[in-house]
Amino acid sequence: MRRTALDLPLLLLPGVGFLILTFGLPLYWAISGSLGLGANGTGFTLMHLADIFLETKFRKGLMMSLYYSIAPTILTLFVAIPLAMLLQKSFPGRKLFNGLYKIPLAIPSIVAAFMVLTLIEQGGFMDRAMMHIGLSMPKIVRDQFGIGVILSTLWKDIPFMTLIIAGAFGAIPKDMVPAARSLGASRVRAFLMVELPLAMPGVTAATLLCFVKSIGNFAAPSLLGPAYPLPLSIQMYDAYLEGDWIAIYSMGTVLIIVSFLVLGAYYALTARTLQHMKREG
């Protein structure tokens, strides 16, 4: 059979073509639409994107989206890492715990959001339980800080992150910590200088996945969040109901750009911290 220069592109076509059609094209439409190009565009302009930052409703919405994604991700990290460490040890009931903590992973976000709602809203289960001792639940559903949203995100994210990070810690060869300890490192320093750097790829993957998952979160903020400001995910849906495609394209593009910026900041921060720890060590 004669080989031609077209062989390779032809072989790649099914895979790459599928990606272009299903992912690339909509992305292109979104970005070009946000720039005023495309079918119902008005010609190239940055005004639509600038609107997201200039109009209060959108600007506060963007802040809210970032808040709903960054705050629970950071909180989750502080719970998931110790939990993942604990799961490396043997303790009574470890097997049971190891199975139980993963249950939230199987619960859809909307169900989780309703569970949190019935549990913590004023007049909800906890409120009625506390009434017996003369206390009442503070307002943490539809409150201005979105505590209900954060709680329900945590409930879903902690097991998710723990699962990935526990895998990363479990993959560390078993003699690493004893070696560090016998060379004079305390339990804490062995963790900071050996275990954490070695588990870092897993921690990074878990953090980024949690962040990206939460920035587009819809169920929890619409059910548990305050009515104003609404995160961009909900505003995009509202714009869709109004048929405002330019606004959808612009908000989508801004969310993508902001996600990349946050990821970039995360990489820069961890790279610098690890470098610093290495120099110290």
């Binding site: 060869p173 003699d175 690493m176 004893p178 070696a179 560090a180 300890r181 016998s182 060379l183 004079g184 490192a185 305390s186 339990r187 050996v194 750097p197 070695l198 290495k278 060590g281």
Partner: peptide, 21 residues
Amino acid sequence: LPPEKRDIAIVFQSYALFPHM
């Protein structure tokens, strides 16, 4: 005493070198 307070050094079968250093 914890390992770090003992004046004992060990070479492991797996060597246990720190791969990131």
